[in-house]
Design a protein around this nucleic acid. Structure first.
Lengths: 339, 339
DNA sequence: ATTAAAAATACAATCGATTGTATTTTTAAT
DNA sequence: ATTAAAAATACAATCGATTGTATTTTTAAT
């Protein structure tokens, strides 16, 4: 099948010149005459030459490639981050390799191994829900591969991050519900080992405290925050007879599940139970009632994270000190919380 | 920054043996004693050795990597195809590189160039809406890189495809609307240069014909099928005063736009206008009314396409004759068409 | 026409791993 | 203990491109 395997040596032979000149011509080096260049380019074209990046990258010890690891490409937030990453990376001459961990630590480890083995110049990552030890991440850093976290970061000292203020997000969401008159607000959270969920939860608690509302342990339900989890969480609350008039969910998907389950049980939204989600997935504008949520600027986060990473890659001198960018997030009011 | 650059030669030097033995040991070759292997593996571990796949792949002339090109990773249909691809590929020992064309021919061309330059062993692709000439695709084939199309294929003879029966999909959707009593059914289609849209449209026309309903040119509206297109299409119909009691949209996203616009104009769904979409995106279960649609088995298509591609990659002997798999699709009835 | 300086091109080593062949070491038979 | 066969390891070429240095060719000054 492998018909075409033209190398610079074949071109050199065909023109009876040296392959180094061919290489320089193809890279538009000033060391080759315009006339020679044209001759070489023409023959290269005719012979169907296609540069072998494996060889080129091996020799140059640079791949101009960035690895991106997200939990799930289908999540709109992550795909808009990826959009931002690609735009910035391509402009800077980098290729992007997109990978999804599917929330599995094992896959995340494998992906990082493969990216490292393929010698990517840097990695952008939002960790999985199972990522509670950071050996594989520190391993990358020790190997000299710059790493930037976005959204789901982890508390390794000396890292670069592009985040939103999750504490503020949690606080704003909860305060909004309180302002609407809610008194018994439950919180759907993710694994408490992840910083973002810890921080959203802390914001939630702080808002309760500021308003003199006592927090009760049964208000916190941690899960993987899939749609089914939202459904199960509501069922659990109803079964246990927990009294609640609002839900603050740490993502939109679980909030959607909750809405579906509440409707099923003929509980009125927002009158009986008001709901706020997190991330502003497009689905939140489609569900009935439309979902109040915290908007995260995915595209901008992607751009900022890529800029930061490229700064790290280009920085030959060694240690860049840690840098954390906090992007703006804001509450978007929709029907699900309009009492 | 590049702290770690341990090669097999470093390991060889440390143990005072030859690098070929190190290479064989790391690849678990039977030509190296167990004792030597253990010694080598231990030192490799200690020194933090990490195989350089660039070098390895260059030498072996194989990358065990598959490139995947989809129009948009955020579309649920495509991300489930990718799920199927990854599962099958990983089991067969292949890595997967995910790329999105964003419906742009220019990007699609670039992506294929990069994949070829990185010497992927094969490519799975669903073409962009702008892909009307196939030079870049034929180029890949001529370069000896096996290519399998899924869903959005193109009419190059001798290709491998994994598709659904789009004609039947279009026919079923339209017949369903007719059965529900609709008489004036408009069709939202994509670019007529793409096979899938041509075929869905043909199916639609055939169903009209079978039922003695005349097709009228103003019933067909071609667009990029984004949400905004669905909105614009409905506006256009209303402005022109076209009489219609049903819409068959060639994807769900445009159907969602249509629903939003119809609701805005206080047109009742399904009573005044019934709607059928295509692809069974998750959003179709969330919108109110829920959307009747044609289900495409994305995950299975991904698995089948990958199997087919790997069969092609493994087939050293040369020309595999064209093979096209047609997967089952089926209509899912929801509220939007229940008159 | 000669020659020094500048420009263009050729030579050869290199990136890190793999692999066919040659050599050395070990094993086993006498 | 010697020796042939088998096993283990070393040698050296190779994948395809890049790049510092050496050599050749061209240019320009006399």
């Amino acid at each position: 099948m492998n018909i075409n395997k033209v190398t610079i040596h074949d071109i050199a032979k065909a023109l009876n010149i040296n392959s180094s000149t061919v290489s320089r011509a193809l890279n538009d080096s000033p060391r080759v005459t315009k006339k020679t260049k044209e001759k070489i380019l023409k023959v290269a074209q005719e012979m169907g030459y296609q540069r072998n990046l494996l060889a080129s990258n091996l020799r140059k010890n640079v791949t101009n490639t960035i690895g991106v690891v997200v939990p799930r490409i289908s999540r709109h937030f992550f795909s808009s981050v990826i959009q931002g990453i690609e735009e910035t990376a391509y402009q800077a001459g980098f290729s992007v390799i997109i990978c999804q961990s599917l929330e599995q630590l094992e896959r995340e480890k494998n992906i990082l191994e493969t990216l490292a083995a393929n010698r990517v110049d840097g990695v952008l990552i939002s960790i999985s829900m199972e990522t509670m030890d950071y050996e594989h991440l520190e391993g990358l850093k020790n190997r000299g591969i710059p790493l930037v976290f976005f959204d789901r970061h982890c508390n390794i000292p000396g890292t670069n991050n592009v985040l939103i203020d999750d504490f503020k997000g949690g606080y704003d969401a909860t305060q909004h519900l309180i302002t609407k008159g809610c008194k018994n607000i439950v919180h759907f959270s993710g694994p408490q080992e992840l910083e973002i969920y810890k921080n959203r939860f802390r914001g939630y608690k702080e808002a309760l405290k500021k308003n003199g509302i006592p927090f009760r342990d049964e208000y916190l339900i941690s899960s993987r925050l899939m749609e089914q989890d939202g459904i199960d969480n509501v069922k659990k609350l109803l079964d246990k007879g927990v009294v609640f008039d609002a839900i603050f969910s740490a993502n939109d998907v679980a909030a959607i599940g909750a809405i579906k389950c509440l409707i099923e049980n003929e509980i009125k939204i927002p009158d009986d139970v008001a709901i706020v989600g997190f991330s502003n997935e497009p689905i939140s504008t489609v569900i009935n009632p439309t979902l109040t949520t915290i908007n995260q600027p995915g595209f901008e986060m992607g751009k900022a994270a890529t800029d930061l990473l490229i700064k790290n890659i280009k920085n030959e001198t060694g240690l860049l000190r840690e840098e954390t960018l906090i992007m703006d997030s804001n509450l978007i009011e929709r029907q699900s919380s309009q009492k």
